[in-house]
């Protein structure tokens, strides 16, 4: 029976895709087939944006320009403060003879305007292995960590967002340095939860979480999210803590790909 043959083939594909690293090459090759479809869907949306840009009035441009100038001044002022702190930090670290982990090279990528299954929490970027994107690469936006690359194809790459149920990121609390792991909740509400935090741990609503850099995947010190609820269920020794991600996961169109420097 042909149906059974194809079913068995599909099951073999599923196993291979899940278990076998070498099979990912095959999948990468197959993605050439679907790239044109993604491109064709993205193109009109991309073009509409370009046209909107082209037709924005001079007044709007002048206004934008003025506000951007103001922003640059502000940022430069902050940066000057930052320089002093960075050099001081470096000196202190040298005193402690700790290795200095600065964040490395970055590249701006754009989201392709195509969507995946809603329960997967993935997005597709317009940069791939031809721009040296690699699997496991951290992805940030202007306000925090977004996720990591889980599949790098030649022209595109697939990013798993922090809210995916398979995602987990090592974090620490900015206020007191307590470390924890923030896992994706996988729900439609786009939240994270802190797992295995004991009831006695000092965590409050409003605490800010940053990456701890443990696990060697994400760079240190980038904002991850803010604690929004803390509850202590009576039947468990762990607290239930939900976190709202600080990256604008479903609104950012421009993101940053980071190449961490090897330590």
């Amino acid at each position: 029976m042909r149906a059974i043959l194809f079913l068995i083939l599909a099951i073999i594909f599923m196993f291979a895709d899940r278990r076998n690293i070498a099979f990912h090459r095959v999948r990468q090759a197959m993605d050439y087939v679907v790239f044109p479809i993604q491109y064709v869907v993205d193109l009109p949306i991309d073009m509409t944006n370009t046209i909107i840009d082209d037709f924005s009035t001079q007044q709007q441009l002048l206004k934008d320009n003025a506000s951007l100038h103001a922003q640059v001044l502000l940022l430069q002022a902050q940066l000057q403060k930052q320089y002093a702190i960075v050099s001081e930090n470096k000196q202190l670290k040298e005193l402690l003879s700790a290795s200095d982990k600065t964040s490395g090279q970055v590249l701006v990528a754009q989201l392709l305007a195509v969507s995946s299954d809603p329960f997967l929490h993935q997005v597709i970027l317009d940069k791939g292995t031809k721009d040296e994107v690699f699997q496991g690469q951290p992805v940030l936006d202007s306000s925090g960590v977004m996720g990591q690359v889980i599949q790098a194809d030649v022209f595109t790459s697939r990013v798993m967002l922090l809210t995916d149920p398979k995602s987990a990121i090592p974090v620490q609390i900015k206020r007191n340095g307590i470390r924890a792991i923030a896992a994706g909740s996988g729900g439609a509400d786009n939240l994270l939860k802190l797992v295995y935090v004991t009831n006695t741990t000092d965590i409050e609503v409003g605490d800010e979480l940053v990456t701890s850099g443990l696990g060697q995947c994400y760079p240190v010190g980038y904002p991850v999210g803010t604690v929004i609820t803390v509850s202590h269920p009576a039947d468990s020794q762990f607290a239930e803590i939900t976190v709202a991600p600080s990256a604008r996961l479903n609104r950012s169109r421009l993101v940053l790909l980071v190449w961490p420097l090897k330590v």
Binding site: A3, F6, L7, L9, A10, I11, I12, F13, M14, A16, D17, R18, R27, M30, D31, V33, V34, I37, Q38, V114, S116, D117, L120, Q122, I124, Q151, R158
Partner: peptide
Amino acid sequence: GLVLDLLQGTLLGEHAIAMVI
């Protein structure tokens, strides 16, 4: 089903099984 798996980013073969049935 395979093309849909590639487009959606699901495990290869997942939509294929359901479509075949």
